[in-house]
Design a protein around this nucleic acid. Structure first.
Length: 551
RNA sequence: GCGCUCGUAGCUCAACGGAUAGAGCACUUGACUACGGAUCAAGAGGUUGCAGGUUCGAGUCCUGCCGAGCGCACCA
């Protein structure tokens, strides 16, 4: 019996009680969750449904819980249902009902954990979107790891996801980039507002090598070549380093295209039609304050040039025209002031800012080595790069480390910790569990013990029950992590599952010892091990981290 | 000054409004002639920044205060 099945059974029992006693069934929820209590004394599962609805149904919660319990005890697979505290209902499954889960997990394989909680939703997920004026730095890396994990999660929950990268190849920062390349090529110092760092020299040298006549051209023409080719080289590098990080996008959207195709003008015209535009002091404004922004925003500057926000407006409308139900923006903390204007923009465009657009803000990442903050990169000088992090701890550890924390908090990553091959390193702890099971399954094959027919009632050891319970939670963890946009829940779950497995392993011998004949208990435990391996692999897969069979 | 985010064990961090606030590390004490000891068991460690409020129930929601980070352009 899975938690989902149990939850339906509880709901059915509750409905039955309400019908029998003539209570108002409209106070009942459509679905309810059964939870794994922290304290095992509180049963395999618990539900607070009686507490939730008693007041509105006009009955005492403990009485209601008792009536539900009475019905549940006659449900097949439910061993006991007890009232506890103010009206909790603590449930226990019989071992056979619980044990069958192992088989269904193994049979579901890579699909176990997938669901349809977000079925039918089309989601545009924009993340990283770093400027093409330099290599990806640490701020963007957090989103690369979290964003890609979230994309995988949303897909596992049944959504159709487009991973999108907005490429800011338009505007003044590109000119500064081009001037910096030109200066570097001519051996001149970096312009005052330009980009420094060794990578500028590298790229300038590449462009010079590819364009022999370049030094003879007048500055404006040379700068144009540096602009065009520099952006292209940077773009290629960014894509490659993300690919090496295991992150690939479905759409690389070029800001420049919005200006070239007239999309910006069209967007402004549409917003003007909708009545949200006004002219003031020669500039064209969007009245975002009508929808909660703290000031109105300029779309066209008084010199007639579009402001950056005009591109955002056109870009948002473009996303919507592609038919997404939700556009998710993942932005760094330095863009926190951006949330209200993007939401207002969506509202101006006639969308529901609470449903059609989500703006997630991720706080900063600090790297620490030997207790000292790491701030500089050899190559970029002023910031730490994606490649620095990967060089230091590897892709698996980097992705796991970045995806393991709630993005609302700033985090300190200790580079020494994440390279350690010991169990204080969470990614190794989880991967080790997977490798250990893989090894055990290899041994089982070597000695010729197979899973055979599962006798689920044999999985009646306390630690087996706890492990089955943990495995059963996985689909709900995936669904809630997707719904809440919080991939770190998966990582925390895996760490907990790994611990639960090790405790099982310590208490329950899986393979026959010495000359011992294999029994159905050995075979049942192999089912359990295979199920655990499946869940660990699926969970790590959602985070974009490998599940090694040997370490 | 205003806005957003955060404040939980010595450290790094968990905890869809639920029961006795958890885990890893560090510290103390144990378990290796058998499936990977990269493991496990036990102990100690907390006024969840402070003060009120809502609720059957608050780390979680609301208000105020204190502290930290990040923002507050006709820049991108």
């Amino acid at each position: 019996m899975t938690p989902a099945e149990l939850s339906s059974a509880v709901l059915a029992a509750t409905r039955g009680v309400f019908a029998d006693r003539g209570l108002d069934t409209t106070v009942l929820p459509d679905t309810l969750a059964v939870e794994r209590p922290r304290n095992p004394d509180h049963g395999d599962y618990a539900t607070n449904v009686a507490l939730q609805v008693a007041k509105r149904a006009g009955v005492p919660p403990r009485d209601l819980a008792g009536w539900i319990a009475e019905r549940l005890t006659s449900t097949p697979g439910v061993k006991s249902a007890e009232i506890a505290g103010p009206g909790f209902l603590n449930l226990r499954l019989d071992a056979a009902a619980a044990g069958r889960l192992a088989q269904s997990i193994v049979e579901a394989g890579p699909r176990y954990g997938h669901g349809e909680s977000l079925g039918g939703q089309r989601i545009n997920l924009e993340f990283v979107s770093a400027n093409p004026t330099g290599p990806i730095h640490i701020g963007g890396v957090r989103w690369a790891a979290v964003g890609d994990a979230l994309a995988r999660l949303l897909e596992a929950a049944g959504a159709e996801v487009t991973r999108e990268y907005y490429f800011n190849d338009h505007g003044a920062q590109i000119d500064r980039f081009a001037r910096s390349l030109l200066a570097a090529a001519k051996g001149e110092p970096t312009p005052e507002d330009g980009y420094a760092g060794a990578y500028i020299g590298e790229i300038a040298a590449k462009i010079v090598a590819a364009n022999p006549g370049l030094p003879d051209l007048p500055d404006p023409e040379a700068q144009e070549i540096f602009r065009r080719e520099g952006v292209e080289l940077m773009f290629t590098e960014v894509k490659q380093s993300l690919k090496d990080f295991g992150v690939e996008f479905d759409v690389y959207f070029h800001e420049d295209s919005l200006h070239e195709t007239g999309a910006v003008e069209k967007a402004i015209a549409r917003l003007r039609e909708q009545g949200h535009i006004f002219d003031h002091e020669g500039a064209v404004w969007l009245r975002t304050t009508d929808f909660g922004d703290d000031k109105d925003r300029v779309l066209l500057k008084s010199d007639g040039a579009p402001a950056y926000f005009a591109g955002d407006a056109a870009y948002y409308l473009d996303k919507r025209s592609r038919g997404y139900d939700v556009a998710i923006y993942m932005l760094g903390a330095d863009h926190s002031g951006y949330v209200s204007r993007l939401k207002a923009l969506a509202a101006c465009a006639g969308d529901d800012p609470n449903r059609n657009i989500e703006v997630l803000i991720g706080q900063l990442v600090n790297l620490v080595r030997d207790g000292q903050p790491v701030r500089m990169s050899k190559r970029a000088g002023t910031v730490v790069l994606l490649e620095d992090l990967v060089d230091a701890i590897g892709v698996d550890a980097a992705r796991y480390a970045l995806a393991r924390y709630n993005t609302d908090s700033t985090i300190d990553l200790d580079l020494d910790l994440w390279t350690r091959r010991t169990n204080d390193n969470p990614v190794f702890y989880v991967q080790y569990a997977h490798a250990r099971i893989s090894s055990l399954l290899r041994n089982a094959a070597d000695v010729g013990v197979g899973r055979g027919e599962l006798r689920p009632e044999l999985l009646d050891h306390e630690k087996e029950g706890l492990l089955l319970g943990a495995l059963g939670e996985f689909p709900a963890v995936v669904a809630s992590a997707a719904e809440l946009r919080e991939p770190h829940r998966v990582a925390r779950y895996l760490e907990s599952l790994a611990g639960t497995y090790h405790r099982f392993y310590d208490n329950c011998r899986v393979l026959p010892m010495g000359d011992e004949e294999p029994t159905d208990t050995h075979r049942a435990r192999l089912w359990l091990c295979e199920a655990t391996r499946t869940v660990l692999a699926n969970g790590l897969g959602l985070l974009g981290v490998s599940a090694p069979e040997r370490m």
